[in-house]
Design a protein around this nucleic acid. Structure first.
Lengths: 348, 348
DNA sequence: TTATATTGGTTAAACCTTTAACCAGAGGGT
DNA sequence: ACCCTCTGGTTAAAGGTTTAACCAATATAA
């Protein structure tokens, strides 16, 4: 894939210097109408396309944006359709600005840093970082524009975008409380409760849950935290937990993905949703409205999250001294069919 | 993001020429043990990382692989979680070889071509092309290694990877036939039947369907083709079609995504799956086993598809003259709970 | 002895752009 | 006449790397 036609060729064809052609291509410098026409014709005729590698080398930029994703195993992207939506949104805006997205899976810190340096990435979208893992410092060492997604970092100088997770948790719980539920379990990720701070998004949703409980004058019961992996399988197994907790009449799953599995698990036990167990999810995945019964859930727009993140990054790159701001996108409780009034009739 | 330490600095520190450092970095050329040690120490100490832009400019390659995806609107990636799996698999292998993936959304042909040329992409993964749209020719003009995914191109010189779509369609249909179903509808994409050739994957599955019908001595009835978008919504609306075709006792949906919507639609009409309608899907999405009833479907491994595609691409790039081969990955019919014996009792 | 490899390096050109510095000529003001 | 500015370019350096060509010294072979 050798570059067939280069600046030099166009220059010769139009009988001007290389610099002039470059100026025409970039719309910079001073060049008369007539020569511009001549150059443009030559470009058209020869089918010239600039060699971005050379340009980038010279200008010290790559027009590449890294999407830094957490990995389970090093080198293996977490299998979560969530990321595709994020990438799709980001790519859409990036492309409009002449940028492109590239995946950076965060394995070894060293490795990650080297990668960013070697590829000369112009900016980073970092997903799911917290203050409590030292990862934030990592990205601050290489000083390139960063936008943190779903990260809840304390430093006010940082650019961040997330949704109102806490409100989401609050709204979901409040909805269940309003229906008369008193013992509401929380299907949380597969993490020790004392490590919750490391998973900022979950922590926020959890806080919303607690807040709603507090307002209702109900006690917070750690025994109601179901700690299972955020996956369909994880959710499915939560049903077994439920079987041992007959006083629990509702579950708030912090992800739709787990809620789907849970719903299946509950039904496989022969129980009915929502008559015997009410269920609320989080995310509103593409098929969450098409389960039976349709899942009540807190909806967030992940594609939009990707879009906004890149827009912020662009601002950050334009005027370096920009007032770095934090954007909180709204969430919306979608009441569908998996929640209903708490009954006095026990599942026994 | 200026490159702080370059070859030059290392050379000075180790008291050798730039070329020698380059040789050490790349493991080429001839350099004695002792100097190698000295250079490596200098590299370590200064924290040198090669500037890939410069390297790539010199070597005429970018170590970037494009994933060419179809777009609905130009510049907008089709919102299909399918692509994430593909990308995840591809990225995994690519990274092992020092390559990275970049998205190329296929809008205007000109634009796409320019992009590949400008970014100097080393290879392309092209998804869902057919002989019948002139797109294949497009990629052949720029002669860079290509692997076609889900494409069914006739040219034997091309490298292709797909799954056994036809067998999948055959197995699904045969399964339904074995259960006694005679009127089996096909939930196909939102395309005119005379355009089916343009959607190779669907055509293959359709052929499998027909083959099974033929073998059973049953006629092919075009009236049984349900042409609705491949989406949850599309599937949902298929239920309305079903309401007008009471002789149909089973539906084979060519995608799980539509099958999920369809299942919801059927249940919303008050009918039961599988007692009144049997249902088979295609893909085995991550939650297909967790619907209620669990979806019977033809399973394919999309991540693996991405992996194999990149492996093929690497071979193609190593020995240019490689015997370009076509890899067909297996599919597997997973009989779960949405299919049962055809009953004589009508839905009326 | 002389011709010839081999070892361990160095020099310099090349990859294709961008861009600062320079320059010739024209026009205008005093 | 002089100085200054403006227009429309050109020249050349620089960006960081790879690599072919070269070279001095030592070892090997005839």
């Amino acid at each position: 894939m050798k570059h067939d036609v280069i600046l030099h060729d166009v220059a010769k064809a139009a009988n001007v210097s290389i610099a002039t052609v470059s100026n025409v291509v970039n719309g910079k410098g001073r060049v008369s109408k007539t020569t511009m026409k001549r150059v443009q014709q030559a470009i058209e005729q020869l089918g010239y396309a600039p060699n971005l590698l050379a340009r980038h080398l010279k200008t010290n930029q790559s027009r590449l944006i890294g999407l830094v994703v957490q990995t389970t195993k090093p080198g293996r992207i977490q299998d979560n359709p969530f990321y595709w939506d994020l990438l799709a949104g980001a790519e859409e805006i990036a492309r409009d600005h002449g940028f492109h997205m590239i995946l950076v899976s965060m394995g070894m810190p060293e490795e990650t840093l080297d990668f960013v340096k070697q590829r000369q990435l112009d900016g980073l979208l970092v997903v799911g970082i917290t203050d409590h893992r030292g990862e934030d410092a990592l990205f601050r060492t290489l000083d390139i524009p960063c936008v943190y997604i779903d990260s809840y970092l304390n430093d006010p100088r940082l650019c961040q975008v997330c949704v109102d997770d806490q409100y989401g948790g609050y709204a979901a719980t409040k909805h269940l409380l309003a229906l008369g539920h008193r013992r509401i379990a929380l299907l949380i990720g597969d993490i020790p409760m004392d490590q919750l701070r490391r998973y900022a998004v979950l922590q926020q949703r959890w806080r919303g849950y607690r807040k709603a409980l507090d307002e209702a004058g109900l006690p917070y019961d750690p025994g109601l935290m179901i700690r299972l992996p955020t996956s369909v399988q994880g959710g499915y197994h939560a049903a077994a937990w439920l079987a041992n907790h007959n006083d629990v009449s509702a579950i708030f799953s912090m992800s739709d993905i787990a809620a789907l599995g849970l719903m299946k698990g509950i039904k496989d036990m022969g129980w009915r949703v929502p008559e015997q167990v009410s269920l609320v999810g989080f995310d509103n995945l593409f098929m969450s409205g098409y389960t039976l019964p349709a899942l009540t859930t807190v909806s967030q727009n992940i594609v939009q999250k990707g879009r906004v993140a890149v827009k912020l990054l662009m601002e950050l790159m334009d005027n370096k001294c920009s007032t770095s701001r934090k954007v909180v996108l709204p969430v919306e409780l979608l009441v569908r069919d998996t929640t209903t009034k708490a009954h006095l009739t026990d599942r026994q």
